[in-house]
Design a binder for these strands. Structure first.
Length: 565
DNA sequence: GCCGTTTTCGGCCCGACTGTTTTCAGTCG
């Protein structure tokens, strides 16, 4: 029996969900979920894995019990435990809980309290505001996400999902070029579908090979040059095929966005150039590379991150697109934690790792005293930390560790340390970590008031959102940006892929006001210093050039920029 | 159910704070 990894993973995942809603041991449920994740991320299919002499128990999260379950699934395609458990549950609950993207525990809570009778009814309750009213914004946000047609994923996860698929496509004999396209190429904050563009061997052969990819559950060919494959994870992967001569045009068309393509087509119309293979070829426009297509439309090349239909086409026509910031422009990272609060690496390790990255400085921003859960530093501990940083600096050459803290903005806008102590720091990153439920007005006032403190420098993760998990607290971004500008304060793009906060739209508003942005990682370990590229993507989506970025400044100029008079 | 182990059972991150469903579940980094 030919059972794919994806099918096995799906059964294990569903079983985990059923365990949760039936109130079974949550650690048992977790064990099945972890096993499903392991199998989803495997490079080889399970049958091959076993036939080449491996034991399933070598896989992390797979022990004696789950390995025998997997073997049975591989032989029969069935999982009796799942069928048995599901048959004892209300079919509606089974349907809701096995929907990818909906958390089974939350679903069970809603189901129980509202006596939901169908998926459609849940949808209706969500749309009519009942979920919001009865459970609050958190639950409402989650249910809406889960009910959306296809689950979205964080960009980091999308990168991880796309990489093995791209490797697989590259291994297809006869293809001469394979590139990522679509929203992931535009580096959007969250990703729905994955898209690739290929050329070389015939579309037919290519598609046939791709369908044998282990994660593919079903597929549908849409016209001669496109196939959409659904993975068991619920993600759709679209493979587009083009002739090499038309590569550039098709890379633009598959990259999108719709808004961008609409603007491009309108620009073409003005010149009586039809933005199709035939239309362009008739005008003898070379369409083998992207740049030629933009040139033919009498505009400068538009980077993928800008292709959102937010005026980039007009700007390209007028040659006034910014030269977007690059990772290499970044001179330092101004937000990170150490073992002093809730980080996993020491001060010295963080500094050494940042130096290896080629940075010239970092700011050490451990949590302030109120954030007890994160082991926030008391005033005395911060004073000791400052001495430790001084000592470290005396040993370093060509690299500066800036004394800083991630200072909580308290409920009424006070900062979490005394001014006497704040004065000892080179800069502050000030963030909201509590009282998320204040009104928009209250939250805005609280932040404005905090900015009136002369030691306030950078507003950390300005909306507190967690992508796909939690909406941010509400703020009046225009008032905050204006106040920051007046007071000489800055805002952060937090590069953590769960946050990416500021959003691209808000960061562009900041740029338009002439306000510099700090692109920081908020790293809690050496490894998380690698989040910087996600922040750079976000900054590029906000049209930021090097001059718009605070931490692209050399250390002396940075210190001047931080000085508030 | 898995893992690690002081090898056979306890832990699976944590612990103070919040805010009402006023007595504990949900939440923050």
């Amino acid at each position: 029996m030919n059972v794919s990894n994806a099918q096995v993973a799906r059964l294990l995942r569903d079983y985990s969900a059923m365990l949760v809603v039936s109130g079974a041991d949550r650690f048992k449920a977790k064990a099945y979920r972890v096993a499903a994740e392991t199998i989803e991320s495997m490079q080889t299919d399970l049958a091959t894995f076993i036939s080449s002499g491996h034991d399933l128990q070598e896989l992390p999260g797979v022990g004696k019990a789950i390995s025998s379950v997997i073997r049975e699934i591989l032989q029969t395609g069935q999982m009796p435990q799942l069928e048995n458990l599901s048959s004892h549950l209300d079919p509606v609950l089974v349907e809701l809980a096995s929907r990818p993207g909906l958390d089974s525990k939350r679903v069970a809570t809603v189901y129980k309290k509202l006596q939901i009778g169908s998926l459609a009814e849940l949808q209706e309750r969500s749309e009519s505001g009942v979920i919001l009213e009865k459970f609050g914004s958190r639950m409402d946000f989650h249910i809406r996400q889960g009910l959306a047609n296809r689950p979205r994923m964080l960009i980091k996860r999308a990168d991880q999902t796309a990489a093995p698929i791209e490797d697989f496509i590259r291994s297809i004999v006869g293809l001469t070029r394979v590139e990522l396209t679509g929203s992931l190429r535009r580096r959007q904050e969250t990703i729905g579908d994955l898209n690739f563009l290929v050329t070389g061997d015939s579309a037919r052969n290519t598609f046939k090979h791709f369908q044998s990819y282990a994660g593919v559950e079903s597929s549908e060919q849409q016209g001669p040059g496109r196939i959409v494959c659904r993975l068991t994870s619920g993600t759709n992967v679209t493979l587009n095929w083009t002739r090499p001569e038309a590569w550039g045009l098709n890379w633009i068309l598959t990259t999108g966005s719709e808004g961008h393509l609409g603007d491009l087509k309108r620009a073409g119309d003005e010149m009586e150039i039809e933005l199709t293979e035939r239309g362009l070829s008739r005008r003898h426009v070379k369409i083998a590379d992207e740049r030629s297509v933009y040139v033919a439309l009498k505009m400068t090349f538009i980077e993928p991150e800008l292709r959102e239909g937010r005026g980039e086409v007009q700007a390209a026509l007028e040659s006034r697109l910014p030269d977007l910031v690059r990772l290499a422009d970044i001179k330092g990272d101004l937000h990170m934690h150490t073992t002093a609060s809730d980080g996993v690496n020491t001060l010295a390790e963080m500094a050494a790792s940042a130096q290896e990255k080629g940075y010239k400085y970092v700011a050490i921003t451990d949590h302030s005293r109120s954030l007890k859960i994160a082991n926030g530093l008391s005033e005395d501990r911060l004073r000791e930390h400052i001495l430790a940083i001084d000592a470290l600096n005396s040993q370093l050459k060509g690299f500066t560790v800036l004394k800083s803290a991630e200072v909580d903005i308290l409920e009424h806008g006070n900062l979490d340390y005394s001014d006497e102590l704040l004065q000892e720091l080179d800069l502050t990153v000030c963030s909201v970590h509590s009282h998320f439920t204040l009104s928009k007005e209250q939250n805005t006032e609280r932040i404005l008031r905090a900015m009136d403190n002369p030691y306030f420098n950078i507003l950390g993760h300005p909306t507190g959102r967690l992508l796909l998990k939690r909406p941010g607290y509400e703020i009046d971004i225009d008032r905050i940006l204006t106040h920051a500008k007046q007071n000489g304060c800055f805002l952060e793009i937090n590069s953590n892929p769960n946050r990416l906060d500021l959003s691209g739209e808000h960061a562009k508003l900041a740029k338009d006001l002439g306000l510099k942005i700090a692109i920081n990682t908020d790293a809690h370990s050496i490894r998380e210093l690698d989040f910087m590229p996600f922040g750079i993507n976000q900054a590029r989506r906000a049209w930021l050039a090097r001059d718009d970025v605070l931490n692209a400044l050399p250390v002396a100029r940075l210190k001047r920029a931080l000085r508030r008079s």
